[in-house]
Each structure stands twice: as structure tokens, then as C-alpha cells.
Design a protein around this nucleic acid. Structure first.
Lengths: 237, 237
DNA sequence: TTTTTTACTTGATTTATGTCAAGGTCCAAA
DNA sequence: TTTGGACCTTGACATAAATCAAGTAAAAAA
């Protein structure tokens, strides 16, 4: 099923446009070839497709080559709780390593392409390349810190602060990926944003409106323009 | 400063009473010796002592040999947000790997002893022992999942659900450490619990009282007895 | 095109929880 | 033993955000 030419395309980590944001950020020259051998598969998803479901057995972690995903768990009461939005260059599935099954769903927010990094291969390669081991632990550490930030947000912040920080965080990440200046293109619904931030979707809508009335942002469906970055930033604190 | 006999005591991972809960859970025989060489130091803390402060440079991760810690970050507004309570056998400091400085404080809740695992040594050893590498990634994955659970709690749960889940979670972890049946000994203040769960401390107090009035628990200062485990569990969902 | 569905906005009302305030209890230091 | 202070409980009141409800706009389907 997989020809030689496919393999070549599949394994071109060194040519990947998100290379510097992805897992093997510190690998150079021959080491990056190791990484090519780790990547077993590319998966193409359309909007709404599941990359994995809660309960699925763990094969490996996934690097997002293009597009975006949301990850969500199911609360004890049975409803969805979104735990993160993930952009290209970011890694999902790290929470499944411990007990060999995914505790969350991962769902594409748009057309999305991911690389499967089978975990056994990744461990083998990490044993050979100390830099890869460091990159792996760094990526996991970053995910822990990301969740700590969300946690701190949900612990105390007001609805306005949550929305402001959400927008600023997304903006920073989009900027690294070369987005247009001061523009945020939301890939998710108000429902999703509210769910993620622990707010009703009506509250998200009202806060967008309120920030627009204050002249800090301009809202046009799922496109947000940041007008007053400093004020928005001040308000988020 | 460190004699041979000290070294022997320091490095006795194989004899440690929290060995099965700690990092090197899958190591056997000679491999566990590798771990002994990783541990560089034991640190004794009294209640209120800081293990590290936010901003401190990262030396390594810490395994709790006995006692307990809280970790807390500082929000943008400048107030404390507790991100976790950590018991013996658990690991703290994983969030500092990525950018080489601690993003949180870690503070002892009681007399506490920790082992310092310098990160470079740990990486070296992980390169030699594939099982150690797996243990390390498992511990990090577990921390990611733990935070996801808190996140899901803060996203939607009511005050009553938060308290119920907090108690049940703590109970499970204490049971693994041989606590008395149905007893929870809280090492932290109502203030801390509220901060962690995103509630005012008065709300924590009221919920304890309410659960006691329902006959599900018995509260006596910082000792909680679970009377109706099933009902408490049902209520937490 | 028209119709249907989904996503979003806005208003009115309710409610869970925060805030303020007062008093009580236990522990530690003198 | 007394005293001071941290910690906790309880009540009264305020409020941010949820919920309920109705309408609008855009996208998808017919």
C-alpha cells in the first residue's frame, strides 16, 4: 500500500514547515533522520472527524502538520469538557501514555493533517539520540504548563478576563505561525469556547460584544481583530 | 560533606517504602541501581518551607519520600492559585523542564522529605535503561491527566461536586498509602482547598457542613470520615 | 432559488456562589 | 495558665454569570 515515493514524502521532517514548532526542535543533520524513521503514518482528517476516541488503545502520539484539533474529555455527568485547542506543530495524545488508552477525544476543527509517532519507535529513537529525549520531555513539560495556565484561569478569573486571555493566547500562537497582524481566525464555535473556558456560550457572545463596545476588538463572525492590544492585555490581568 | 555511609542511605531506592508509587516503578534488580546513582540529594522540609520558588532555576525533579506539598502559581492579578496537592511517592517540578525555571512555588504542608533527581543524570540514565525512560514518560503523562481532571472539574462542576470529588480523590490516594479505612486527614487549610477548587473558603466550610448534614461524611476539624462512600460518589457525578 | 438547520445575539429572570461581617475554637507562645 | 492569633463557622446580603426564551443571520440542503 505504501510505495517508496510515499515513504519519502512521509518522512521529510527536515522539510516540514512546522518543524521548528514541533517535537524535534533541537535535532540537526543526521539526528533528524532518526525522526523520519519514527513517523509511521500521515492521517488526513476533515472537519468533525475524530483522530481518536476516549477509550481507544494508545498507538502513539500525534504531531499536527496542518490544521487544528480540539481535545475533550467526558465529565462524570456525561457531558463534554474541552481540555484544549491545538494548532499545527503541537502534539496531542500525551495523556494516553500512562495507561495505554486515550482518556480524551481528539476532533478536527477543520481539514487537518497529523503525523503518527508510534510510541515504541519514539522511545527507541530517544534512547539513541539524547537530544530527542530532551525534546520529548520538553514537549510534555510544556503541556503540563499549558494546563496549569488554564487551571489558574478557571480558578479565579472573571468571564471578561477569561475571554481576554483566551484571545491573547490564541493570537500569540497564531502569530508564530505567520497569521495576519492583529487578526484571529477562530476555528471553533462560541459553544466550544464557552465549554473550554467554563462559561455559557451566551456569556462568550456577550463578552465579545462588550469588548467590541469598549473598542478593544472588532468581531465579525469568527474573525476577530485586536484593536487595542495593550488595553486587552491590561484587562486580562 | 557526604560520607560513604550517607551515600548508602541516600541511594536506597530499592528499600524505599514508596518505591512502588514513585518514578522507577518498573525497574528491577540491577536497573534500580541506576536510579540510586541519579538521586543526588535528600532535602528535609518543615511545614511552610519552600522546596522551590517561582522563577528558581531548574535543577531537577523531586520525588516526595514522605510528607506532602502544595504547588501554586501566581495569577496575572498577583494572587496565589494552587495547582495541586502532592503526596509521598509523587513527583513535582515536571513543569520546569521546558524552560529551565520553575513556574510555580512548592511548599511543604507538613514535615516532608524529598529526593532531588538532577535532570541531566535522569536523562543519561533513561538513555541507558529503556524501562526508566518509559517510567519517566508515564509519570509525566499521569501529571497531564491529573491536571485534565482538575480542569474538567473547574469547567463545569458545582461546589458540592467539587468538594465530593476532592474528598474521593484524596481518599483513593491516601488508601494506596495505607491510611485508616474511611479516614481522610487533611494537611491543608479550608483556604487552600477553596483556592485549589475555585471556591471561597466559606463555601468549602458550608459544603463540608452540608455533606455532614446529609450524613455522607463526618467532619472534625481536619479529619474527615466518609460515612456513605457510594452516596458521596453518586453525588460527585 | 427556497427551505431548513445551525450558529449566534440579545433580553429578562433566576440562582449559585462570592463578599462582608461577626463570633467561635483551638493551638502556640508567653 | 493566660493570651494572641490563625483558622474555621455561620448568617445576611450582593452579584456575576447561568438559564430561559425569543429572534436573527448565515450556511447547508433540497
Amino acid at each position: 500500500m505504501t510505495g517508496l515515493s510515499d515513504l519519502k514524502i512521509k518522512t521529510a521532517c527536515e522539510n516540514c514547515h512546522v518543524r521548528k514548532l514541533c517535537l524535534p526542535t533541537s535535532l540537526e543533520g543526521e539526528e533528524i533522520q532518526l525522526m523520519n524513521d519514527v513517523v509511521s503514518d500521515r492521517i488526513q482528517l476533515e472537519k468533525g472527524d475524530y483522530l481518536y476516541n476516549s477509550g481507544d488503545s494508545f498507538k502513539g502520539i500525534y504531531a499536527i502538520k496542518g490544521g487544528s484539533l480540539k481535545t475533550s474529555g467526558v465529565t462524570a455527568e456525561g457531558d463534554e469538557q474541552i481540555t484544549g485547542f491545538h494548532l499545527d506543530g503541537e502534539i496531542v495524545g500525551l495523556d494516553a501514555i500512562d495507561d495505554d488508552q486515550h482518556p480524551c477525544d481528539a476532533i478536527a476543527l477543520a481539514s487537518t493533517e497529523v503525523c503518527l509517532l508510534p510510541f515504541d519507535r519514539l522511545c527507541d529513537a530517544s534512547g539513541k539520540a539524547p537530544n530527542l529525549l530532551k525534546d520529548l520531555t520538553r514537549v510534555m513539560s510544556r503541556e503540563i504548563r499549558r494546563e496549569e495556565h488554564v487551571l489558574m484561569l478557571l480558578g479565579t478569573a472573571t468571564a471578561e478576563q477569561r475571554i481576554a486571555r483566551f484571545l491573547l493566547n490564541l493570537y500569540e500562537r497564531l502569530q508564530k505561525r505567520g497569521a495576519q497582524h492583529n487578526q484571529i481566525s477562530l476555528q471553533m464555535s462560541r459553544q466550544d469556547i464557552g465549554n473550554y473556558l467554563g462559561l455559557a456560550f451566551e456569556t462568550v457572545s456577550r463578552q465579545f460584544r462588550s469588548l467590541q463596545d469598549l473598542g478593544l476588538i472588532k468581531v465579525e463572525r469568527r474573525n476577530i481583530e485586536i484593536i487595542e492590544m495593550n488595553k486587552l492585555s491590561a484587562l486580562s490581568e
